[in-house]
Design a protein around this nucleic acid. Structure first.
Lengths: 220, 220
DNA sequence: AAATGGTTTAACCGTATCGTTAAACCGATT
DNA sequence: AATCGGTTTAACGATACGGTTAAACCATTT
């Protein structure tokens, strides 16, 4: 791994832990086992390094979601399975890219303008990985065939993202309030994922009862 | 308003905008029209001031939710109305205490330990405002009468919080991805709130169809 | 082996920012 | 009017932190 890569991955770690403003260039240098001046040699300024980190994080998450879905969705016939896949892939992406998710979450609240900039750049340069409209039109189709109730596709997407993100965003509070013993977090995550799928399916399907063929989507 | 109060409310504003680490004591002083030394006179250190701010924020949000619900829930007979009320009051609390919500959101990701500490303190000192168990037992009752499906009450609560918080946490992204024109945000918020209620009702009720008596819960 | 150019280093600079301090202010008490 | 305690101020450390620089290093080319 060359120096620039070492810096970038150390930066992702530190920014994930401390947030944009809590991060010190010195700490990134130490964690990358690199002289501090190297950060400025490759990235010019903290601001620019952070933006590169943010773009990388957002890109990785989006790619994970999109790739996971596009690889499997065509093999499916039952729209119920497709919805399940969409929900599961969101959850997987957030739980598997936890550093990237943390960066995104903290940036959305402390520097939303940066997030907007990063999102716009990715949408421009990689339109294939950023495709909410695909989901929207899929939902529209299912509404047309009366398989889905009269729901707002965009709102539903926001809700899916919200339910999937919340636990990662609010770990301390959810654990405290809901008496989750952190010992078997794995177990809890599985239940959480299943619960989201269940709520969404019953929330949007006209007739949720018929069991769908398989249980797709990886679980951690 | 005395000096200490002036400092605290200025601090809430600044911490909400800039986050814990992005906030400068000087800026709080200026916004409170107070000499910087006064911050240290009343709060000793930035760390302690922040913790007071965090506790205040968490308390206000919790109180808003709890008060709103307890005032109206007893007048209701239909459990559908009660669920609607619970969801609506969460949404109202987050959208009305936007500074406090921002503080909570940014702290959860950049300093979760502080949030945990604050939450524990409130749970100890004000057990009445922190009552997730009430919601849980309400859900359990409705499950017993077969009015609710076999859902996990704790997971459902987390989902309610998640769907209600996500838009405030992720404004830039949701707006960008979902083509929401910020012009009529009010309109969007109403739709968002209604959509969450709809999804939850259909997601957890055994038979969601019978229309419920009134549309309770304030809308902004 | 000299030169070239990308890479790396130690040492340093300036300023932003947390926090301190000693004195002044000022209303209430005696 | 003297004093006393809570409050406020201007000025001042100390240092953490972002960023710079000039020289050294070193692999490759000529």
């Amino acid at each position: 791994m060359d120096t620039k890569e070492k810096i970038l991955s150390a930066a992702i770690e530190v920014f994930a832990e401390k947030g944009k403003h809590g991060t010190r260039m010195e700490e990134i240098a130490v964690r990358a086992s690199v002289n501090k001046a190297m950060l400025y040699y490759f990235f010019t300024t903290k601001e620019k390094l952070f933006q590169e980190v943010l773009i990388t994080a957002l890109f990785r998450i989006s790619k994970r979601i999109t790739d996971g879905i596009t690889q499997q969705i065509d093999a499916m016939t039952d729209p119920r399975d497709k919805v399940t896949l969409i929900v599961n892939k969101h959850f997987d992406a957030y739980s598997q890219s936890s550093d990237e998710t943390n960066i995104l979450l903290s940036s959305m609240t402390t520097c939303p303008a940066d997030v907007e900039k990063a999102a716009k750049k990715i949408a421009e340069e990689h339109p294939a990985v950023f495709c909410p409209e695909k989901f929207v039109s899929f939902f529209e189709e299912c509404k047309a065939t009366k398989l889905f109730r009269n729901i707002d596709p965009r709102q539903t997407l926001v809700s899916i993202v919200g339910m999937n993100l919340i636990y990662f965003a609010a770990k301390p509070i959810s654990q405290l309030l809901l008496n989750i013993n952190v010992n078997n977090e794995q177990e809890f995550l599985k239940e959480r994922q299943a619960s989201i799928v269940d709520l969404i399916l019953h929330g949007i399907l006209t007739d949720p009862e018929p069991p769908h063929t398989t249980k797709p989507g990886s679980v951690l």
